[in-house]
Amino acid sequence: MKRNIVIATLTAAALVAGGTVAAFAAGDDEATATQRQAGTDARAAADRDDADDDRTAAPRGSLTAADAIAAALKHTPGTALAADYEDDGSGTWEVTVVQGDGSAYDVRIAPGSGKVLGAQRDADEDSDNDDRAELAAVKGASTDAREAALAAAAKGTVTEVGLDDDSGAVAWSAETVKDGRHGEWKVALDSDRVTQDRDED
């Protein structure tokens, strides 16, 4: 009788141990599946980030960077320091305009109609030393942001134009898209001469 009890106890213990191992095995499978899913989600997020950073996206509609700058200046008089096509799905242009008192505005332009969607004062940019230096450099320039955008348009569809002083000499910097390829250019302040931006190669 004792022998039967011992055997039954050992069998039950084996079943419990086997069940535990099975449970652990199932847990490992679930953990592995979870890790695989997390890896897939991370890759998908990275792909989305890459898509957001895709600089080969061409502006929607026929409104050019030069048109957007002209519309922004008509609405908010001043000096345009930059124009940027927002490829985040909105398709709007954002033009940075600095007025004589140093106040800076971000003017949003609709891609198709050229209608001004709004102008918001950028307090972070007000009285910024870099902006003042850029404004001073542009004041005596014979090429403004609109003319720089027009000059760079010979290289492709302009998606961004702004000032660049990375190399020590201030110049207009423009980004273009042509045949699905991204290009970066410099436009001289004293002429409409366009050269490839070698610093960005």
Rank of each mutant, 00 (worst) to 15 (best):
I7C: 06
I7S: 02
T9F: 01
T9S: 11
L10V: 14
A13P: 08
A14L: 13
V16Y: 07
V16C: 14
G18N: 05
V21A: 13
F24T: 11
D28R: 13
D28Y: 15
D29G: 10
D29N: 10
D29W: 08
A31M: 13
A31Y: 15
T32K: 10
A33R: 07
R36L: 07
Q37A: 10
A38K: 15
T40R: 08
D41C: 08
R43A: 13
R43N: 12
A44L: 09
A45G: 04
A45N: 08
A45P: 02
D47P: 03
D52C: 02
D54Q: 03
D54G: 02
A57C: 04
P59H: 04
P59D: 01
R60H: 07
R60E: 08
G61K: 03
L63A: 05
A65R: 01
A65D: 04
A66L: 05
A66H: 05
D67W: 06
D67I: 07
A71S: 02
L73H: 04
L73M: 15
K74F: 07
K74D: 11
H75D: 12
T79F: 01
T79M: 04
D84Q: 03
S90D: 11
S90Q: 12
W93V: 00
E94M: 12
E94R: 12
E94Q: 09
E94S: 06
V95D: 00
V98D: 07
S103A: 09
A104W: 01
A104G: 02
Y105C: 03
Y105M: 06
Y105P: 07
V107C: 02
R108D: 11
R108W: 09
I109M: 11
A110E: 12
G112N: 07
S113K: 04
S113P: 06
V116Q: 04
V116R: 04
L117I: 05
R121H: 08
D122I: 13
D122G: 02
E125Y: 03
E125I: 02
D126K: 10
D128P: 02
D128I: 11
N129E: 10
D130Q: 09
D131H: 13
R132G: 10
A133S: 15
E134R: 12
A136T: 15
A136L: 08
A137C: 09
A137N: 10
V138G: 06
K139E: 08
T143E: 02
E147Y: 00
E147A: 14
A148G: 08
A149V: 06
A149N: 12
A151H: 04
A152T: 02
A152C: 03
A153W: 03
A154R: 11
A154P: 05
G156W: 15
V158H: 00
T159L: 01
D164C: 03
D165S: 10
S167T: 14
S167K: 15
G168W: 00
V170R: 14
A171M: 10
W172G: 00
S173W: 15
A174L: 03
V177W: 01
D179N: 06
R181V: 13
H182W: 07
G183M: 11
E184D: 14
E184Y: 12
R193L: 13
V194A: 12
V194S: 13
T195L: 12
Q196L: 10
R198S: 14
R198A: 15
R198F: 14
